[in-house]
Nucleic acid binder design. Structure first.
Lengths: 339, 339
DNA sequence: TACCGTGCTGTAAGGATTTTCAGCGAAGCG
DNA sequence: CGCTTCGCTGAAAATCCTTACAGCACGGTA
């Protein structure tokens, strides 16, 4: 049988109230008393029951995180960063993986985090008004990552600007026929990136005095296969593009594969730029836009922890992205492209 | 203010005990009574406080999962599978990411899952006796994934056999000088795979009547860079290998890069086989050994849930691996290898 | 008719903390 | 020296459920 606070109190010769205070490092405990308590606790190998503590205090020492797909690189990376911050602060992490739009719907109707977390992190979801309302009924600090919503604290990158960064890089190399391979802007999961990156793409072209050719915009799935299919479509055009901006590295990989299978070279015939700086981007020598993934995770987590003490204002923190130039846009020592 | 069980009882005109029973679907409640209670609960938007329930019942409805590095592909994949099973059963998932050997040590000394989970899943860790002892003090059902330990339930693949599968494939192609690029068998994180795969590699060679040449065994990091460095070493040998078995797809990627940078071709000059069937393996046209990752997750999770009702025996469940032949060992339409 | 089981329901005892409030001795102050 | 303040400690209420047990009404059995 595990020891209870009463056993510790008895052994230390104090009341349970004093044990509680000592163990939690509260003030108003004499140093000698505290030492006695700590010694007793150590001897009995005592740990407070978190559930009893949570029930009594009303605080759960837990934060919930909601991600669309844990197994995808971006989300797994975020999760790792968030977990590190929280566990170090003594907080538990309650993971909710949506997996599909049904899962998403279930989450927002059931709200399985109710009465069990102190704060919630929402990753990469563009919230509907109903969802916002549902979240508000929780009356908890909410942190968003990778998307923003008025009234909520958020950490993200500026997808519009980042997309411009990508397109401008292609423009600076002299390309004028630049295609876009992106995610479906009508995606039921309502990711924000596709929409914003498409906007950035179009704005960059217009700013350069080019007209937007919608036949060069291919929207589909956020996967390698999706990128490949989209590229095949582009290659079939009477006048194919000379460069492609893919909204994710994975789509870029698919595009590169399609280009090479068609007997063309990257970057000589068609330049490719991706987005994310996925861990394999360097390997595949893909030029891309790097976004600080772990940092975004650390920032939301830290902000939420802080908000538990003194409420913070719902700011929208925008982190910088960085252009990483590699061999898929600029002729260089591209291992896979060399003969 | 959120409604309490008492409010529901009052509204439904029954006692709180009946409310509790009704809401949890226990028998011994008249159908009409239950309906009244459910209606009242719905009207008040009532959800039981999990902490009060846990304190009163002694059950936590939570299972803890311990992974070395969440952000790595394999673990993220496992996590997703486990979460799906648990959340569907109404269980919470408490994530613990070790991150380093210090993190590992901290976990096993502090045992942060104490008094807060009903079961624990340990992923890919070869446990020391001290760690086993620590886990046993928890007196909880323990499930292992990707490793086994007598006395514990486990789900895994047979790394020795899988490694033989890989080497036999190379042998069947006529290779006789086959190198190994693997993980450090003295890794402080004590992953099991490196050790077993090395064993399988050696056994396969011996079974084929070949002598094991230790200069062809390169053990380092489980990363792209590690694989590349190892391959460089092999290429520098007086008589380089004609084929390489890498213990992970990522190391295989590194090896392929090193080979191509040296001006050699895959698979014509050197064949490469990996391990895992990582999501990018198809993209890079890498022959590999596929292991059922999600299935392992589903199996442990399900087994542990079952063990909460009636204790199961500590079986060791071994799932099959599968050889996936692609262009890195057999001349085919390898996109990146073509001139 | 007396008795017994059956099917439901309610009462009340936990469960293990946190936290409020009262209290006590000692020190400080005038 | 008397009174206040301060520092520390303990008693007990509060947190919100689950569950053992007792009890009640009713139909069935002997």
């Amino acid at each position: 049988m595990a020891a209870s606070i009463e056993d510790v109190a008895k052994l230390a010769g104090v009341s349970i109230a004093t044990v509680s205070r000592s163990l939690r490092g509260l003030p108003d405990v004499a140093a000698t008393t505290r030492d006695k308590v700590l010694a007793a606790a150590r001897e009995l190998d005592y740990v407070a029951s978190p559930f009893a503590a949570r029930l009594a205090s009303g605080r759960s020492s837990t934060v919930g995180i909601v991600v669309p797909f844990v197994h995808r690189w971006f989300f797994a990376e975020v999760l790792g960063a968030v977990e590190a911050v929280l566990s170090q602060a003594g907080y538990d992490l309650l993971l909710h993986n949506l997996g599909s739009s049904e899962g998403r719907e279930r989450f927002f109707t059931v709200l399985p985090v109710r009465k069990r977390v102190d704060a919630v992190i929402i990753v990469s979801l563009a919230l509907t008004e109903d969802e916002v309302e549902a979240l508000n009924t929780l009356e908890l600090p909410i942190g968003m990552l990778g998307a923003a919503h008025p009234g909520f604290f958020s950490v993200r990158i500026d997808d519009v600007t980042a997309a411009k960064q990508a397109v401008n890089h292609l423009l600076s190399l002299g390309h004028t026929r630049i295609a876009l391979i992106g995610g479906d802007t009508d995606d039921p999961m309502r990711f924000t990136p596709p929409h914003h990156r498409l906007t950035g793409y179009e704005q960059a072209l217009q700013a350069a005095g080019l007209t937007v050719d919608h036949s060069l915009e291919r929207l589909g799935y956020f996967t390698v296969e999706g990128g490949e299919a989209a590229m095949l479509g582009l290659l079939g055009l009477p006048e194919p593009p000379t460069a492609v901006f893919a909204e994710s590295d994975e789509m870029a990989y698919g595009a590169m594969r399609a280009i090479r299978r068609a007997g063309l070279r990257v970057p000589e015939d068609i330049g490719v730029i991706g987005f994310d700086d996925h861990s394999t981007a360097a390997l595949l020598d893909l030029t891309t836009i790097r976004q600080p993934v772990a940092e975004q995770g650390v920032r939301v987590a830290a902000a939420l922890l802080a908000s538990l003490h003194d409420p913070i204002e719902p700011t929208d923190l925008v982190l910088d992205t960085e252009l990483i130039v590699r061999g898929s846009t600029v002729k260089a020592a591209s291992v896979y492209a060399e003969s």
